[in-house]
Design a protein around this nucleic acid. Sequence first.
DNA 1: GTCCATTAGTAGGAAGTCCTAGTATTTTCG
DNA 2: CGAAAATACTAGGACTTCCTACTAATGGAC
Lengths: 195, 195
Amino acid sequence: MSAQTRTAAEAAEVAGVAVEASTGPTGVAAGSGLGFDPIARAREQWVEQGWGPAADGMAAITSLMRAHQIVLARVEATLKPLGVTFARYEVLMLLWFSRRGSLPMKVIGSRLQVHPTSVTNAVDRLEDADLVTRSTHPEDRRAMLVALTPAGRELAERATTALNTEVFEQPDLGAEDVRSLVDVLTRLRRGAGDF
Amino acid sequence: MSAQTRTAAEAAEVAGVAVEASTGPTGVAAGSGLGFDPIARAREQWVEQGWGPAADGMAAITSLMRAHQIVLARVEATLKPLGVTFARYEVLMLLWFSRRGSLPMKVIGSRLQVHPTSVTNAVDRLEDADLVTRSTHPEDRRAMLVALTPAGRELAERATTALNTEVFEQPDLGAEDVRSLVDVLTRLRRGAGDF
DNA sequence: GTCCATTAGTAGGAAGTCCTAGTATTTTCG
DNA sequence: CGAAAATACTAGGACTTCCTACTAATGGAC
């Protein structure tokens, strides 16, 4: 939210250019802010160009990108005072939920579906902050076991409380929409082979 | 899709750890891949911990993050042979749709809702690739006008064709779900002040 | 008419993602 | 048993994002 809050001046700029560069009747500007949805506008342009069959898919994917940007900004703003990022928070929670309090790097990457080097990166920083420790796996000396420190466990709990109260319980969406969103995205993920 | 396709070995790893680290009856493994949804599992854990009121919001936001990751990977894989990234493609299309074929940096940032330095970065690379040109605005010497070159215009069209046929027309979702997704995300964006 | 606040853009840095290539260890197989 | 293949992790690089700080130019206040 912090970085994405648009100033009045910026909104005016955008509106001005929209008038300059648009063909359709977008100058209505009723409601709050711009008064028109840039993605709806792009969808119209797609149709005008003869790309109708792709218009809905374009709108869906563009909406997804933008929504991700908005939500991630909110999450990061909430975590910032605690000194962690969302990427590192995810690693902490994975460890927090694990029985032994430790997992191999490989498993972390598989669970979060990120590249092995991203795990190395995140664990490096968590280790520097004394939130996790690294040790070689006793039964496979190739593998590294990552374990929560007491400080890491405590931070995971505080971060979760912050996210729960400041973000997850305030979704800016009705309960119906939240469930519908999860349902649709679950089908999307399954279709992509996510699980 | 390329980087996110899970190998059988990785799936086995994940399943193995899931058995080790989970409490619920997740070992069913019916259907394809893992057989259980990590996000649904996380939601259950949220409820078990007494964080029920935040569980749906957590699931929605986590789903959004993951869906974004999947979709972005598909988009980038499609654009890669053309030598552009999605960030730069967005700039090209903004210019392509503009009347004069040129826009000030500021407007690009406002439209895409990214930081000014991100625009500088993208335009730097587009300029290096001779896809756009920079020139000072005739009426405001602080501002830079970014304009498409013929090569940039042509690439924008080829990239759009590729995205339309390979991604936007293949959403891995039913038409009903696509529209529902756009609707819900539109409400989310409006609630966040996006337009 | 000059001075100051605002605005547009850029530079350098931190952090995330991925990729390719490398090392060390384990497993497989002939 | 010993060589080859597979696996786990890390190093360095490219790219994106953001942030803070800076320069140049515009415009308003007095």
